[in-house]
């Protein structure tokens, strides 16, 4: 009985995050989204991917289960500890896309420490996110933190490798 009842997959509908096309029409149709959100949504900056295997690339992957959003944010760091490039890919609502787009824009050219100081409240303020969408900016902050953490872990293992090599050669 159970299987028969659950067989109707068309019954599964997303509850919270509207589909992209539906959102696009709604974005233009209503003024409920701030122009900054619409701007980032329609012209997202820095969409794409960096090489995950690169030692100078940090990757942050975070999700918001309540909406079914997933966000990937990557940073490329040079030898002086400056973020020279940032890319993101977000599958989720307009606010999540705008938040991550803005985040990549902000962290580019910053040092690791400066990037870690970016707060979700700043993102939310810039995009004038309504309270129900605050978690999207939090997701962006989490993504930055995760990318920084991933980079640092990679670097420490790289250092460890170097030391090992040195030790083995000497």
């Amino acid at each position: 009985m159970a299987a028969a009842n659950m067989g109707k997959l068309s019954l599964v509908r997303p509850l919270l995050s509207p589909s992209r096309t539906a959102l696009a029409s709604r974005l233009t149709a209503s003024a409920s989204y701030h122009k900054n959100v619409i701007d980032h949504y329609e012209n997202p900056r820095n969409v794409g991917s960096l090489d995950k295997q690169d030692k100078n690339v940090g990757t942050g992957l975070v999700g918001a289960p309540a909406c079914g959003d997933v966000m990937k944010l990557q940073i490329m760091v040079d030898d002086n500890g400056k973020i020279v490039d940032a890319k993101f890919k977000t599958f989720g609502c307009g606010s999540a896309i705008a938040s991550s787009s803005l985040a990549t824009e902000w962290i580019k050219g910053k040092s690791l420490d400066q990037a870690s100081e970016i707060k979700n409240s700043q993102i939310a303020k810039e995009l004038s996110l309504p309270p129900v969408k605050l978690h999207c900016s939090m997701l962006a902050e989490d993504a930055i933190k995760a990318a920084l953490k991933d980079y640092k872990i990679k670097q420490s293992t790289k250092d460890a490798d170097k030391k090992e090599k040195k030790a083995s050669t000497s």
Binding site: L61, V62, G63, A64, P65, V70, F91
Partner: peptide, 16 residues
């Protein structure tokens, strides 16, 4: 809850 973020990275990767 909205703020929930406790989800496995490997699963997120798959979804991505």
């Amino acid at each position: 809850e909205e703020g929930d973020s406790n989800i496995e990275p490997t699963f997120l990767m798959e979804i991505m």
